[in-house]
Measured scan of single mutants.
Amino acid sequence: STHNELEKNRRAHLRLCLERLKVLIPLGPDCTRHTTLGLLNKAKAHIKKLE
């Protein structure tokens, strides 16, 4: 159905954006896999440090 396709595309776009963010944020050497929340929290902390 159309709704399923739209949802699939939305999730794919979100995944792509999170992958791009992961490249930009210093995550530390001990981190190989992150939850979305963990990645967003690290991004928030990094932005605050830059301010």
Rank of each mutant, 00 (worst) to 15 (best):
D30Y: 11
V23E: 13
R20F: 00
L39P: 03
D30T: 13
A43G: 03
L6E: 03
I47V: 06
H3A: 10
K22M: 01
T32L: 15
L21W: 03
G38Q: 10
H34I: 08
I25L: 09
G28W: 14
V23C: 15
I25P: 06
H3D: 12
E5C: 00
P29N: 10
L24P: 00
R11W: 07
L16F: 08
R33P: 08
K22Q: 00
T2C: 05
A45I: 12
T2D: 08
L21R: 00
T2F: 03
L50E: 02
R33M: 05
R10C: 10
L14M: 08
G38S: 10
T35G: 11
E7N: 14
T36S: 09
L14R: 04
R20A: 02
L27C: 03
C17D: 01
L39T: 04
H3V: 11
G38P: 04
L27K: 15
K49W: 11
R11G: 11
K49V: 03
T32A: 13
E7S: 12
L39W: 13
H34P: 06
L6A: 09
A43L: 04
H46Q: 15
I47G: 04
K48V: 01
A45C: 07
S1G: 08
N4C: 06
L39S: 01
H34K: 15
A12N: 08
H46W: 14
L50Q: 05
S1N: 09
H3S: 12
C17E: 02
L24K: 06
L37W: 13
K42A: 06
N4F: 01
R20K: 13
K49F: 11
I25Q: 03
I47H: 00
N4I: 15
K49E: 00
L39F: 13
H3K: 14
C31Q: 12
V23P: 08
A45P: 02
H46P: 03
K48S: 02
H34F: 14
L37H: 05
I25T: 03
T32C: 14
H13F: 10
H3L: 07
L40N: 03
S1L: 03
E51P: 10
L16P: 09
P26E: 09
A12S: 12
R15D: 01
H3F: 14
E19R: 04
E19W: 01
E19H: 08
K42P: 01
V23T: 14
I25G: 07
E51V: 14
E5S: 08
R20E: 00
L39V: 07
G28L: 09
H3I: 06
L21G: 00
A43T: 06
L14W: 14
R15C: 01
K42F: 07
C31H: 15
I47T: 03
K49N: 03
L18D: 02
L18Y: 06
R20L: 00
K44C: 04
K22L: 02
K42T: 08
V23M: 12
L21H: 06
C31N: 14
H46F: 04
R11N: 04
L40H: 00
G28V: 14
L40M: 10
N4E: 09
L50Y: 06
P26L: 06
L37P: 02
R33E: 02
H46N: 05
K49T: 02
D30C: 10
P29W: 15
T35K: 14
P29K: 15
E51I: 04
P29I: 15
I25D: 01
R15K: 13
H3Y: 10
R11H: 09
L18I: 06
R20C: 01
D30E: 09
H34L: 12
R10Q: 08
P29Q: 12
H3G: 14
T32Q: 10
D30L: 14
H3W: 03
L18E: 00
N4H: 05
L27G: 14
K42D: 00
L21E: 00
A45S: 07
P26S: 14
L39A: 02
E5D: 11
C17H: 02
T32S: 10
K8S: 06
P26D: 06
K48P: 02
L14Y: 13
K22C: 00
L50I: 03
A43Q: 01
A12K: 11
H34C: 10
P29D: 05
E5K: 08
L6T: 11
L16Q: 13
T35E: 04
K44W: 05
K49G: 04
A45D: 03
T35D: 05
C31Y: 09
T2Y: 10
L24I: 13
L24D: 00
R20T: 05
R15T: 05
R20D: 00
I47W: 12
K48E: 01
C17V: 12
K42V: 03
L21D: 00
R33D: 02
L37I: 11
D30I: 13
R20G: 01
K22N: 03
E51A: 15
L6P: 15
L16D: 11
L50R: 04
D30G: 14
L16M: 11
H46K: 14
T2H: 10
C31A: 13
G28K: 15
R15Q: 05
R10D: 03
H13N: 13
E19V: 00
K48Q: 04
T32P: 06
K22Y: 00
T2N: 13
N4D: 09
G38L: 06
N4W: 02
C31M: 10
A45Q: 13
E19Y: 01
L50C: 07
K44N: 01
R20V: 01
H13Y: 11
L14V: 06
L21T: 01
L14K: 02
R11K: 14
K42I: 07
P26I: 00
E51S: 15
I47L: 12
E51M: 15
L37Q: 09
L16H: 03
I47A: 03
L27I: 11
N41Y: 01
I25F: 09
K42N: 03
K8Q: 04
L27M: 11
H13Q: 10
R15Y: 00
E19G: 06
R33Y: 10
L37M: 09
H34Q: 11
P29M: 15
E7D: 08
L40I: 11
P29L: 15
I47Y: 09
C17T: 02
R33L: 05
L39N: 00
L16R: 13
T36P: 10
T32Y: 09
N41G: 11
I47E: 01
L16W: 12
K22I: 00
A12G: 10
C17K: 07
R11F: 05
L27S: 13
L50N: 03
R20Y: 00
A12M: 08
A43R: 01
T36G: 13
K22S: 04
E19I: 05
T36L: 10
L21A: 03
K8H: 08
R20Q: 05
H46A: 13
T35V: 12
R33W: 10
K42C: 08
R10S: 08
T32V: 15
S1I: 02
E19N: 14
R11I: 07
K49H: 00
E19K: 04
K22G: 03
L14S: 06
E51R: 15
E5M: 13
E7G: 10
D30R: 14
E5P: 09
C31G: 12
N41M: 03
L37T: 12
G38W: 07
G28D: 13
